[in-house]
């Protein structure tokens, strides 16, 4: 049986790398779906506590931080546990997505060297997995904030937009890091250290207000400040941050995504040679 007109692959006739990658991702959308489903399933499959594990780490961190710092920050931050927990939820999403975008790509080197697939699939599905976990964490966060009496606000309706911007930013950085990880074997441990420093440089367990004015502008260069802010404010204080905070977050997200996509795709023919 001859199929009517089989697809012809010609190594000389290829489109722009970004267009090529986008088209391939759309064609392999089932693989994205399967990768996300697989990561979620394998994470929860053999654990009776399931979802609890996702939240255990931030919950314990929050508990410890609350016990240690609540006296210190008393007066500056109202409802400290929710403040920390909501900030950590956003941060954990960011750190797990960027980390997984790198490590998944490296671990699949053998597969990449043997069978064709869009190489951005790892970063994209890492973002998908992060979003699913974020939705779960967010549900738990809402329950806890009800218990602790901070209530629910209409401002929560902007949270999906905040999550979207954060996801786009994380995906862009994930693509950039994945490219670097292909070339430098020690990228992963270096990034883990950077993440730790970065987290403490981001107002998550403290408020930006405690930073002295002269050096506050340095803290405002940190893109994660804006993402944490737009995610945290609606649930913690029931307010929607001013438009300029949103605008800066959106600019960072768009810029990082374009940079990541450009660097990643312009190098993607090289990966099979290197991994």
């Amino acid at each position: 049986m001859r199929s009517p007109s089989p697809e012809v692959y010609d190594s000389n006739r290829r489109r722009h790398p970004i267009v090529e990658e986008m088209a391939a991702l759309i064609r392999y959308k089932e693989l994205v779906r399967q990768s996300v489903a697989r990561a979620i399933k394998t994470r929860y499959k053999r654990s009776a506590l399931g979802v609890v594990w996702t939240m255990l780490n931030p919950l314990l961190t929050t508990l410890v931080l609350t016990l240690v710092f609540s006296t210190y920050f008393r007066g500056t931050i109202a409802n400290f546990p929710i403040y920390v927990l909501s900030g950590l939820t956003a941060w954990n999403f960011f750190s797990s997505v960027t980390h997984a975008a790198m490590s998944d790509m490296l671990m699949s080197g053998m597969l990449l060297g043997r069978i064709y697939m869009p190489k951005s699939i790892f970063a994209v599905s890492a973002t998908g997995v992060g979003l699913v976990n974020l939705a779960i964490s967010f549900g738990v966060l809402l329950v806890i904030s009800l218990i602790l009496g901070s209530g629910l606000h209409w401002s929560l309706l902007v949270t999906p937009l905040a999550a979207l911007l954060l996801a786009v930013f994380s995906l862009g950085l994930g693509l950039l890091l994945a490219t670097a990880a292909v070339y430098f074997a020690d990228m992963l441990p270096v990034y883990d250290v950077l993440l730790l420093i970065w987290m403490y440089a981001t107002p998550i367990i403290y408020s930006i207000d405690i930073i002295p004015t002269p050096i506050r502008s340095i803290f405002l260069l940190n893109p994660m400040y804006y993402f944490v802010e737009i995610f945290r404010a609606p649930i913690h204080s029931g307010t929607v941050p001013p438009w300029d905070v949103w605008a800066i977050a959106a600019a960072w997200a768009a810029g990082m995504f374009l940079l990541g996509a450009w660097v990643f795709t312009s190098r993607s023919n090289d990966y099979a040679y290197r991994i």
Partner: peptide, 9 residues
């Protein structure tokens, strides 16, 4: 050089 492949590999 160039590689041309007709159909699903």
């Amino acid at each position: 050089g160039r590689v041309v492949i007709r159909g699903q590999v």
